[in-house]
Computed example of a mutant assay.
Amino acid sequence: MNGTDLHKTAADCAEELPGARLEHPFVPDWEVCKVRGKVFMLMTDVPGRPVVILKADPGEADALREQYSHITPGYHMNKKYWITLESGEGVGKEFVGELVTDSYRLVVAHLPTAERPVDPRTYGTGTRAAR
């Protein structure tokens, strides 16, 4: 998957998530996806490389960074809770969708129960596909 496809795939996945909104609160080249006002995904170019920045459980973030060369600590974000995904071989549509959905679920889980558009314990869960 190339960088353009990475951004499009991530944006398409985010668009399907209940209550998700795409905004440009910073500068035009930063796209930010929020649910109920809380950020769960950012997309931009990091010196010529399109990236997607996502929230991740700290243990899972460490494991993802160790396992995949295309995943690094969150660019301009708390490195413990955020990851940066770059395009490349082995980065497929299903994998991107899972990471975006996981990020969304983590953010939704911290919303007050009355504001949650979905139950984060069950929404989008399933077994991880081979990456």
Rank of each mutant, 00 (worst) to 15 (best):
Pro112Val: 10
Gly48Thr: 03
Met43Glu: 14
Pro120Glu: 03
Gly37Val: 07
Asp102Asn: 14
Thr127Met: 08
Ser87Lys: 00
Pro117Arg: 01
Trp82Cys: 05
Ala114Gln: 13
Glu31Ser: 14
Leu99Val: 03
Leu42Asp: 09
Ser87Trp: 11
Ala129Glu: 07
Glu23His: 07
Glu16Val: 09
Cys33Lys: 11
Tyr68Asn: 10
Asp62Thr: 14
Ala20Gly: 07
Ala56Asn: 03
Thr9Val: 14
Ile71Phe: 09
Lys55Glu: 03
Leu54Tyr: 06
Arg21Phe: 02
Val100Trp: 08
Ala10Ile: 11
Leu99Gln: 07
Thr125Trp: 00
Gly97Tyr: 01
Arg116Thr: 05
Ala109Gly: 10
Val32Pro: 11
Ala63His: 13
Trp30Leu: 15
Phe26Val: 08
Val51Asp: 06
Val27Gly: 11
Gly124His: 09
Gly126Met: 07
Leu17Thr: 02
Arg36Gly: 09
Thr127Cys: 00
His76Arg: 09
Phe26Trp: 15
Leu64Asn: 02
Lys38Gln: 15
Ala129His: 13
Leu6Glu: 03
Thr4Tyr: 05
Val39Ala: 11
Arg105Glu: 02
Leu111Ser: 05
Glu86Gly: 12
Val46Met: 13
Lys80Gly: 01
Thr113Glu: 14
Arg21Ser: 13
Tyr68Pro: 00
Thr4Lys: 13
Val107Asn: 01
Thr122Ala: 06
Asp5Met: 11
Ala14Val: 09
Cys13Gln: 13
Asp12Glu: 15
Val35Ser: 02
Val52Thr: 15
Val100Lys: 07
Arg21Thr: 15
Lys93Cys: 13
Val96Arg: 02
Val52Lys: 06
Ala10Pro: 06
Glu66Ile: 06
Arg121Ile: 03
Glu115Trp: 07
Glu89Ala: 10
Ala10Gln: 01
Tyr75Asn: 00
Glu60His: 14
Ser87Ile: 11
Val46Asn: 11
Val46Glu: 15
Val91Trp: 04
Ala63Pro: 02
Thr9Trp: 01
Ile71Asn: 02
Ala14Asp: 00
Val51Thr: 10
Ala130His: 08
Val27Gln: 13
Gly3Thr: 08
Val108Gly: 06
His24Val: 14
Ile53Pro: 07
Val32Phe: 05
Gly126His: 09
Met77Tyr: 05
Tyr123Arg: 01
Val39Trp: 02
Arg105Ser: 12
Gln67Leu: 12
Ala10Tyr: 04
Lys34Tyr: 03
Val35Tyr: 07
Leu54Ser: 05
Arg128Thr: 11
Ala130Phe: 06
Ala61Cys: 04
Met43Val: 14
Thr127Pro: 10
Cys33Asp: 11
Thr113Ala: 15
Leu54Glu: 04
Glu89Phe: 02
Ala20Arg: 03
Gly3Val: 07
Pro117Lys: 04
